[in-house]
Design a protein around this nucleic acid. Structure first.
Length: 575
DNA sequence: GCCGTTTTCGGCCCGACTGTTTTCAGTCG
């Protein structure tokens, strides 16, 4: 029997926690299940395997009880405690409790007093005006529940990619900054997460009224602004709301830190504060000497005996321990990039010419640009056959005469279903840089997909694997692969794994890239640009790399081309 | 249920906001 995956285990434990909560379990026991589930979700290795070996308890938030339950799930296929909890409380209450405005307490009351066990029944009750008869629910909540359940996106957690959110949020911030206030992005935007469900912005101001009217005047704002003295919110054209947090400059550091999160990171910090006889919030750090305000974040972290932590690492993935000992990595930045190794032109499915791409890359300060169009089997993308490739090389040569930036003969060659490549070896040998990618048969079995990738990784003429798992945010999950085996092959052969920066890909993702680093596999950040502007997608790849804890030394295209070329030559000589 | 520069037992994050209540619980981030 196949072992349960981490998401499967996490889902079971989350459900168990939710049912226990409804059943009146002690708050912190519920929290322990949630934390354990979150930890399992964020862990790269198979937690089922760890639990079977008895080492899952070495993970934070996993104790012997949870480990036993994971083993039980892995060996018997179910967890007795979960089955028991389902008998004590109807499972549908979990969904009811997740409805906006309702929570565990009200969900329980809805069941006990009105007999509803499904969201549909709650909607009917609300429609008939009978939900208000339940203790703790009045007309206003009933209305809110009904509206939320009838909304077109009901039940879905509306999230948009960082690539859609960031440009709009930056415009909003610039617009509001015209009031003279200091304006910064916060929340998942600042942490560089894959997606966000709102645009968190913080403002240092003593005049909230002016900021609120500036917000209302922004073109991206698409409705009424609601506000208090410390907060303002409004819907935007993006479909997700903007949320402004305001506070005086004297404690801007506290506010910015608070609003940046993540929640798990902040909880850890507050626990740490408590252990030191302090209490922290967005208002400052409270202690025996009274409340201390911090104008910058460095002060907040210093008050807890910590070095300042880069936002991308604030996910409770061990960053606090590193900040305590001063061992935080010097994260790679966009400015470290010296070149782009994955970009398309109008020779295949890109929209811009070789010359236009070269100019845009030069504008970004790059020293080299790989012209890496698709290979023939990707016919709908206008992939090039060997004859067209040679033709393109002549065009690259002509373009090179006109530009300073070093243009590389490159390809994004398809990895075919059997693991072979879509160009003959004689041709591959003449490229400066070869990226190999999967573009088809994503649903192949785990074994087959893994074999396919490893075959490409072991090919002596392949420099990098493009978007290694093929996931598309909101559309297609990661291909089912044996990641440790793939990482091992990459580390062994020196073939780089791409962090693809396209906002909908972000592939490898942060957790996988972190694992890749731990396994000793090399990485490359690629924009996968199909137009000159999209060379900027490299910033999202960098965000993922930073979340993985990568330094400049970990990323191939922070090196000068001469160094990469020499390393390739040495590798070819070995094989 | 987890965990330890107070602890192997007794703790466990903080504040804003809303709508429900008769002085505050529940929810949310």
């Amino acid at each position: 029997m196949a072992l349960p995956t981490n998401p499967e285990i996490a889902a079971d434990l989350e459900l168990l926690g939710a049912l226990l909560e409804l059943d009146g379990a002690v708050r912190h026991r519920v929290l322990a299940y949630r934390r354990g589930a979150a930890r399992i979700r964020a862990t790269g290795e198979s937690v089922a395997e760890l639990a079977m070996a008895g080492t899952a308890v070495e993970l934070p938030d996993i104790g012997s009880t949870l480990q036993d339950k994971i083993v039980e799930r892995a060996t018997t296929g179910s967890i007795a405690a979960l089955e028991k909890a389902k008998k004590a409380v109807p499972e549908g209450l979990v969904s009811i409790a997740a409805s906006p405005g309702l929570g565990p307490k009200r969900a329980l009351a809805v069941w006990r007093e009105a007999g509803a066990t499904t969201v549909g029944e709650v909607r009917s009750l609300a429609g008939e005006g009978r939900l208000r008869e339940v203790t703790g629910i009045g007309p206003a909540l009933e209305r809110g529940v009904l509206d939320a359940l009838n909304a077109p996106t009901a039940g879905e957690d509306e999230r948009i990619s960082l690539g859609r959110a960031l440009p709009v949020a930056e415009d909003l911030a610039r617009g509001i900054a015209e009031t003279g206030a200091r304006v910064e992005l916060a929340g998942s935007l600042r942490r560089g997460a894959d997606t966000c469900h709102d645009l968190d912005i913080v403002v240092a101001t003593d005049r909230p009224e002016g900021v609120v009217s500036a917000l209302a005047a922004q073109p991206a704002v698409a409705g009424e602004v609601s506000h208090s003295d410390v907060r303002a919110g409004a819907p935007t054209q993006l479909g997700v709301p903007v949320e402004l947090l305001m506070g005086p400059p004297s404690r801007f550091g506290n506010l910015w830190q608070h609003a940046t999160g993540s929640k798990a990171h902040n909880v850890r910090l507050r626990e740490r504060a408590l252990a030191r006889g302090l209490s922290m919030s967005e208002h400052g750090v409270d202690g025996p000497g009274g409340l201390v305000e911090h104008a910058d974040e460095e002060g907040v972290y210093a008050a807890l005996g910590l070095a300042w932590i880069p936002p991308e690492l604030r996910e409770d993935v061990g960053e606090i321990a590193l900040a305590e000992t001063g061992d935080l990595p010097e994260l790679v930045g966009v400015a470290d990039l010296r070149g782009e190794l994955h970009a398309h032109t109008d020779w295949s499915d890109g929209t811009d010419t070789i010359e236009a791409m070269a100019a845009a890359a030069a504008e970004r300060g790059y020293e080299y640009l790989a012209i890496s169009d698709h290979s023939a089997s990707l016919s709908m993308a206008g992939g090039l056959d060997p004859a067209r490739v040679r033709e393109q090389w002549r065009a690259i040569e002509r373009a090179q005469q006109k530009v300073e930036i070093r243009l590389l003969r490159a390809t994004e060659v398809d990895i075919l279903a059997d693991g072979s490549l879509d160009h003959p070896d004689e041709l591959l040998a003449e490229f400066d840089w070869v990226t190999a990618s999967v573009h088809s048969s994503f649903r192949a079995s785990r074994e087959r997909m893994t074999r396919r990738l490893i075959a490409a990784i072991e090919h002596p003429l392949v420099d990098a694997i493009g978007h290694p798992t093929g996931r598309m945010l909101g559309r297609r999950p990661h291909a089912d692969i044996d990641l440790p085996a793939v990482l091992d092959a990459a580390a062994r052969t020196g073939t780089r794994l791409e962090i693809n920066g396209q906002p909908r890909r972000r592939d490898l993702d942060d957790a996988m890239a972190r694992q890749a680093l731990a396994a000793g596999a090399g990485l490359v950040v690629g924009s996968d640009a199909h137009a000159a502007d999209s060379l900027d997608f490299a910033r999202y790849g960098i965000a993922t790399a930073r979340r993985a804890g990568a330094t400049a030394a970990d990323i191939a295209n922070t090196r000068p081309w001469g160094e990469l070329a020499a390393a390739r030559k040495a590798r070819a000589a070995r094989s």
